[in-house]
Design a protein around this nucleic acid. Structure first.
Lengths: 339, 339
DNA sequence: GCGCGGAACGTAAACGTTTTCATGGGAGCT
DNA sequence: AGCTCCCATGAAAACGTTTACGTTCCGCGC
């Protein structure tokens, strides 16, 4: 730790400036001396002191990620994607997750200043006002799935609309005519988009009048209840599209309990492709969100902003989804990707 | 960003030294001037430049986490625990995960030097030689579940042994007499410990001779095959203890296929408590690893090492497990915690 | 032979803090 | 009144880099 650039300079009989130039490949050094300096540096196990470097270069080579209090695989996949892309670019990743309320998030956000070259923000608290309050204007920032449209920050969203539309089209293509949608919490923006996709596919097919939306809250239990409701409908639907997998699974229980066959009588599909979806009976057809890709794209975007801060922000990027066809919809067993 | 301590000093009519003292609460400043300085600082939105600070204090307030290429909830729970504890101590978290091979891990490890005050390492590549090669001696390090016993680093492990023993005792307590264990890959240290716990409970109960271990590879499929094997055994076992939940689930399929009732004829239990365990039929009794607690404990330990580097390393800490009793073992539905 | 340009390298300033040391002044004591 | 001592404050050094600016030296063209 305590071996500095001066030690290297002394051992190599050059000035610190030459060491810096040689190690950073800035030229102005003979190939020969460069080689000598490099050798001395590795022999001494010299590692540049990052703080000193950032102090003068004003770069930390680090990006910060502000994430919500998230359990489960969404979180890990997202970080995976971010981390992968970051490493590829030689960037470090400073994470701060699991902040319960807006105040905590604000503190975390503030504390990151000066530690990072850019910020990835995905937080339920991150509305426009919050960001204005807590973000310095100069810090490049990418908003992930926050549905905030701001001139000042780039954003990146999941294609909930396209995924839901594609899934609805898939069901229609299989000959299903009465498709019921089970929604989640009203305030949830993703849910809104999914409903919109569902309705859009229906009206495009000329079935606009048949749209029927039941309400749930993302839990298995609410899916179970919605399933019961669907069974009671007249005419009975021939397909149920739940806004997430957990509700779809609850729905499956309701159908099984009523001795209704899936998919023969009623097809059931979900959204998210949680790991469990593959193991329920029948295996659940669902819409997969390519979460790692989301993280990766977010980081790429951020890196671009850091390198060329003045570029006009490109149109908001949308991350693709894909339909995973399993047994529960009565189609063939494949994965279909949407661009 | 560009407002420095000098700006604050000028505005408050004091020297930079006083500002530093006031803001860090080092004393030697009148309550009155301190108040004034604080006010100016917040008004100017002054945020200290961390690089400059670390340069002189030789502290980064950051700890690094080197993690394997992990999917799923284990990863996210672990980070959750670490992050929670870190925030509570005002520490930042620099993560580097998803490095495929030892070389990548080594690079990541090296690059963290000078960026962090301490290191949390959980990596399949992190054996003794690797660490000696790539870690500076001075950097406080905590090894998570790596089963490396080193004088130089602290370590923290999951109590696989205790968990397996407790589960076996639980089955014995329910009157099961012929318990078969399905192991995982031989090389896996966790598996070894789980087998040891299983055997230990058996011999303590005087059933040492009845230990029977089948082999799997952690996949659902291998659990299915092991289940078939178990069914073919004479006399037939009355309980199956799988080394992880996925194999237990495969096992359940094998039993269902053979029209063997669970838990009436054969009890089935697993290890890990993956989210799916609750949803299979019957719901799976299993051993839960308190992963977040693992991360939390690791960070606490590391923080202690950083604050008092010369303290003798306490005995290797072991993180508790708990038995989650669901329907598949025929016991009552509770969670029992082990110390 | 002399000046000139450019390459290689060195010197020193600058980055923004913390901290040591010096300085001044006021209070308390004799 | 004068001395001492302490406390608030300021000046300046130090941390380890990068980089602008000089300096030296060599080769080349006149």
């Amino acid at each position: 730790m305590s071996v500095t650039i001066k030690d290297v300079a002394r051992m190599a009989n050059v000035s610190v400036a030459s060491v810096s130039r040689a190690l950073n490949g800035h030229g102005g050094v003979t190939a020969e001396t460069q080689k000598r300096i490099r050798e001395v540096a590795t022999r001494l196990r010299y590692v540049p002191h990052n703080a000193a470097r950032s102090l003068i270069t004003r770069r930390t080579q680090t990006i910060g990620a502000l994430l919500p209090d998230l359990h489960g695989s969404f979180f890990s996949e997202l970080i995976r994607g971010i981390d992968l892309a970051a490493r590829a670019r030689g960037l470090y990743l400073l994470v701060s997750s699991s902040h319960g309320d807006a105040t905590e998030a604000a503190i975390a956000l503030r504390a990151m200043q000066g530690r990072v070259d850019g910020l990835l923000v995905m937080s339920p608290h991150a509305d426009e006002a919050f960001l204005d309050e807590n973000l310095p204007i100069v810090l490049p920032t990418v908003l992930i799935n926050s549905h905030v449209r701001s001139e000042r920050h780039a954003s990146l969203d999941v294609d909930d609309f396209g995924g839901a539309r594609a899934m609805t089209e898939h069901l229609l293509g299989l000959g299903r005519k009465r498709i019921v949608f089970i929604a989640g919490p009203e305030v949830n923006h993703d849910v809104q988009e999914r409903i919109r996709g569902y309705r859009d596919a229906l009206s495009t097919a000329g079935f606009g009048g048949r749209a029927a939306v039941l309400h749930g809250d993302f839990t298995e239990e609410s899916g179970y209840h919605a399933g019961k409701q669907a069974l009671a409908m007249v005419p009975r639907p021939d397909a149920i599209f739940a806004a997430n997998d957990m509700m779809a699974i609850g729905c499956l229980s309701a159908l099984a309990e009523a001795k209704v066959r899936t998919p023969e009588d009623i097809a059931v599909v979900g959204f998210d492709d949680i790991p469990m979806a593959r193991y329920v009976s029948p295996p659940l057809t669902t819409v997969r969100i390519r979460i790692a890709e989301l993280g990766e794209a977010a980081l790429e975007r951020l890196a671009a902003m850091i390198e060329a801060p003045d570029d006009a922000a490109p149109e908001p990027h949308v991350v693709s989804t894909e339909i995973v066809v399993r047994a529960s919809c009565g189609g063939s067993d494949t994965v279909r990707r949407r661009a």
